[in-house]
Amino acid sequence: MQSPCTLAPVRRGKAAFTLIELLVVIAIIAILAAILFPVFAQAREKARQTSCLSNLKQYALANLMYVQDYDETFPMSAYLNVSCVATFYWAVNPYVKNSQITQCPSEKEAMNVQLLTGAPCANTPPFNSYVVNPALYANGFIPGVSTLSLASVNRPSETVMHYDGNTNTSQQQIVQARHQNMFDASFVDGHAKALQATLTTITTQQFTVMGPGKALKTYRVGTSGGFYAGQTECNGLPQ
């Protein structure tokens, strides 16, 4: 028999969040996401830029090996090789042996070499993200043009070889700042680094053998580009 002095157990309701508390938590999560997502995006782009820089460094070394094997002369940017178009991509490919090196992770298929040349020679990498300094790599389709010698480069550490870019309908090798208003470039002495660029209001289109291709943005090289500052392409030899 239960003692009359024994108190009955008190039943408590289950603890739960109120609607207001849930809304506050959701709002906090949304604010944190808005703050952190751009940071994560920047971190991912920085990783892609680092990979791109590594590609250009390897590409620079491959080109320099080619130069040493061919009487210290640079390959042409393009020329007719019997029934196919030979490009600098094709010329240095034996020293690279990895078509991924020709592609920037931020825009892997920037240029379709088939569309760019019409009939690329066998073993030419199918896609490329990098262009060349036209002053170094002679265009073999220009009558009487000759290749440039390494001895002609007076300031190799300041002379750009390859960089993030694309070819427009005027066949200019325009800069493409794919890395948060930065583009990567390699130099004749073998080093590679990131350079600043500023987006302009000028728009252009990509060159293809079938006519104008996709729309392209135009950038101007920043002051960190030295001799090339103010240009929309890295064209020329510092003296």
Rank of each mutant, 00 (worst) to 15 (best):
160 V>K: 00
183 F>S: 00
176 Q>G: 08
192 A>M: 04
78 A>M: 10
205 Q>G: 09
61 L>H: 03
104 C>L: 07
126 P>R: 02
141 F>K: 10
106 S>G: 13
239 Q>L: 11
90 W>C: 05
99 S>W: 15
100 Q>D: 08
79 Y>M: 14
228 Y>K: 09
83 S>K: 15
116 L>Y: 10
25 V>N: 13
27 A>F: 11
231 Q>A: 10
38 P>L: 10
208 T>M: 05
21 E>V: 06
230 G>F: 08
130 Y>P: 04
45 E>I: 09
101 I>A: 14
110 A>R: 03
71 D>Y: 15
99 S>V: 12
82 V>A: 15
71 D>H: 09
123 N>W: 11
101 I>D: 06
35 I>W: 13
204 T>D: 04
143 P>S: 10
136 L>Q: 03
206 Q>M: 04
116 L>I: 08
178 R>N: 09
140 G>D: 14
198 T>A: 14
236 G>F: 01
20 I>V: 13
146 S>K: 09
125 P>L: 08
47 A>I: 06
95 Y>S: 02
187 F>C: 02
205 Q>E: 10
233 E>Y: 02
83 S>T: 15
222 G>N: 13
206 Q>F: 02
192 A>F: 08
90 W>F: 05
139 N>G: 14
170 S>I: 06
107 E>C: 07
213 G>K: 02
211 G>W: 04
54 S>K: 03
72 E>G: 09
165 G>L: 01
85 V>H: 05
182 M>W: 00
48 R>G: 06
207 F>Q: 08
119 A>D: 10
162 H>A: 00
110 A>N: 07
226 G>H: 00
233 E>C: 06
117 T>K: 04
190 G>F: 00
185 A>F: 00
44 R>I: 11
204 T>V: 02
146 S>T: 11
53 L>E: 10
142 I>W: 11
217 K>F: 06
130 Y>R: 01
65 M>C: 06
222 G>E: 02
11 R>V: 15
4 P>C: 13
67 V>M: 03
172 Q>V: 07
222 G>T: 08
58 Q>V: 13
159 T>M: 00
166 N>H: 05
173 Q>I: 06
87 T>H: 06
211 G>A: 08
25 V>G: 14
221 V>R: 01
38 P>S: 12
180 Q>T: 15
35 I>T: 13
201 T>Y: 12
94 P>L: 07
158 E>I: 03
159 T>E: 00
78 A>N: 12
112 N>F: 12
68 Q>R: 12
39 V>G: 14
209 V>C: 12
20 I>Y: 10
179 H>P: 07
141 F>W: 08
102 T>A: 12
197 A>Q: 09
75 P>Q: 07
196 Q>W: 08
3 S>W: 08
55 N>G: 09
149 S>Y: 03
71 D>Q: 09
25 V>K: 12
15 A>G: 14
51 S>G: 10
72 E>T: 08
32 L>R: 05
166 N>Q: 05
214 K>D: 04
236 G>L: 02
130 Y>H: 02
122 A>T: 11
219 Y>R: 03
31 I>T: 14
11 R>D: 14
239 Q>S: 11
211 G>V: 06
113 V>S: 09
24 V>Y: 09
151 A>Y: 03
228 Y>F: 13
52 C>E: 01
214 K>L: 02
219 Y>S: 00
28 I>G: 07
172 Q>R: 01
34 A>G: 14
